[in-house]
Every structure is written in C-alpha cells, then in structure tokens.
Amino acid sequence: MTQTEFLNIVMPFKDKVFRLAKRLLVSTEEAEDATQEVLLKLWNNKAKIEEYKNVEAFSMTMTKNFCYDKLKSKQAQNLKIVHSNYEEKNTPLQKQIELNDSVSWVGRIIEELPEQQRVIIQLRDIEEYDYDEIAKMLDMNNTAVRVTLSRARKAIREKLTKTHNYGVR
C-alpha cells in the first residue's frame, strides 16, 4: 500500500479521531499526539488494513483505548501540579471569559462527565454515528449505549438549566 492510498483511507476520519482524543484528553497538544500515534499505528499495520471490515470504527476504538491508557497512566503517575499554598482572590481571567461564553460552558459541563458518557456524547452528538456503530466501537450493546447517552444528555440539560436560571456563578 502506498502513502497516497493510505491517506485516502485515513483522511476522512482523522479529524474525528482527533476530536475524540481531545474530548478525552482535553488538551489539544495531547490530542494531537494521540492522533499521530493512532495514525502511525495504522500505518505500521497497513498490511492488515484490508482485513478490517470498517477501518474507521476500528481506529475510533483504537483511539478510545489509547486515550484510556493515557489517562490511566497519568493518574498512576501521582504527580500533580496543584497550587497548595497559593490562592487567587479574584476569579482568574480565563475563567471569567469562559463563564461569559455559554457555549464553552457546555464544553466544561461535558468535561465533568464520566469518561464513557463523554465518549458517547462525542460519537453521537458531534460525530453523528448511529447506535450500532457506536456499540461496535465501544464494545457495548445497543441499549447500554442508549442508556448512557440518555444519562449524559440529562446531566448536561440539568446543569444547563441551573446555570440558565441562576445565571452563571
């Protein structure tokens, strides 16, 4: 398989891989690295690529697993950069701006959801995959996907109504 052939296969969904990685890892740089890693893995296994029925679904599963591993290893490192003796009196500038922007507020709400719900919201509401595809990617059954999705959507709606009614705190 030549490079161009490979790129033709990969191009349509590389953005989706990136967005999924970003949804899980939050930082853009890390998401870029993860995407690169996933694409390189695909490239190295290009001999097998024709055997896969659905390369896109396969790469999404790969991305998800890769990001989970990343997150796990991060937690295991136990080294966190946290200010313990420093407290800012005013709300930080970035936070203020974010709070003003209700759209990015949604992003923060999603960030607080459990990983699985985040993945499913990403795959369904942003990437618009159908339930069967998502079920296959995540190795879950159809109803479990629906239940998780419904929970995630309700959680988002609840938080949104709260901020909508009381104003952004």
């Binding site: 790129l7 953005d15 891989v17 990136f18 967005r19 870029e32 995407t35 690169q36 990437e127």
Partner: peptide
C-alpha cells in the same frame, strides 16, 4: 464538528 486535525503525521 468543525474542529480539524492540522498536525502533520510523519509517515
């Protein structure tokens, strides 16, 4: 949906 992956992948 619009966000894109812009980094090059060294193949």
């Amino acid at each position: 949906q619009q966000e894109q992956f812009t980094k090059d992948v060294p193949l």
